[in-house]
Simulated scan of single mutants.
Amino acid sequence: MSIQWQGVFPAVTTKLRSDFSFDAEATQQGIDRLINDGVAGVVMMGMVGENAQLAPSEKLDVLRAAKEVVAGRVPIISGLAETNTERAMAYAKEAEGLGINGLMVFPGLTYKSDEHETISFYKSVANASGLEILLYNNPRGYGVDLTPDVVERLLEAPTITAIKEESYDTTRVTDLLSRFSDRLNVVCGVDDLILESAALGVVAWVSGMANALPRPSVELLKLAVAGDLINARKLYAALTPLFHLDTVVKLVQHIKLAENIIAGSAETVKPPRLNLEGAEREKTIAIVNKAVSDLKTLGY
């Protein structure tokens, strides 16, 4: 299945049991809910999916579970987050063998590579399989910035078709679209910059909080892409306090708690992450409940 980079692609949370083991059934239920609410694809094991905390065997179990429940309805993109090039290439081959449609490739973890090393890493991963690649540009999180000049070199690899732009600099969106619009799909990777990004021409969004509220998120992007900014702003205003929680260190905990409140799934996270407690947890609950109330007022 070729990936059409249009619409909302939730960075799916990996559901866990109380003993921190992978809960395939709950994860599949979550994926099914997302697809039924109109998402365009699913991104398994991004940062939100706790990729770095999962054992190699667990990662493959997650992909198998996703493949089973998706059943060809939407593309499946797997996060690829490894500490060295050899393991990254091996994972790309394994994902391809399982029939996954694409990879969202993190820079090499734990090491801040320079431009030459970064280009070599991504090209090596691209050459390891025939899967489409979504570059993951998150310089705040990983210390590596895929600037337009670096991207130009990376686009020598034909399977690199998209970039998840998470530099928090909206001028980067314009620079990338102006320079590579006929070759590269620019995907918003920041929940509380989606309306701004869509106004600049972005039509795809990898979202964390769409796990909790998929249908309003899908509608927001549709309104923005259609140019209905009056209604998009109203919906965005209701969602933005919740979207802000996607941009902080504990985003996984906030997203899973929001899912728990709205959809009933477990909020368990894999240590060293710990569930939210006390005032921090109560604040998130209040934000979620306010967003739900405001959405009801708007008819959602």
Rank of each mutant, 00 (worst) to 15 (best):
E96I: 08
L155M: 15
K112I: 10
A238H: 01
I100N: 02
V203L: 01
A263N: 12
L295R: 05
I230P: 02
A286R: 04
S18I: 04
Q6N: 15
M45S: 03
P241N: 06
H254V: 05
V48L: 02
V43L: 07
H116P: 00
I230C: 04
D37M: 07
T297D: 09
I262K: 09
W205I: 04
F9Q: 08
R183W: 08
T83K: 14
A162Y: 09
V218R: 05
P139C: 08
G201S: 11
N84S: 10
F22G: 05
A71I: 03
K112S: 13
N260P: 00
T297A: 11
K296S: 13
D228C: 00
T268W: 03
E86H: 10
A237I: 04
L177I: 13
G102T: 02
G99H: 10
G49V: 01
D149S: 15
A66K: 04
N101Q: 14
V39H: 11
G99T: 12
L295S: 11
V151C: 08
L54R: 06
A65Y: 04
G38V: 05
F243S: 00
D145L: 07
K164L: 05
N127C: 06
L257G: 03
T147V: 06
V125Q: 07
M47D: 03
E282S: 09
G143W: 03
A224R: 08
A81V: 04
T268D: 08
L154P: 06
T110M: 11
D23H: 04
T85N: 10
F180E: 10
P271Q: 12
T85D: 06
L80H: 08
V248Y: 02
G46A: 03
D32V: 12
P107N: 09
V12C: 08
V70I: 12
K270C: 09
A238Y: 01
R179M: 14
A199D: 10
E280Q: 09
V144I: 11
G46Y: 00
S2L: 14
G264K: 00
A26I: 00
G208R: 00
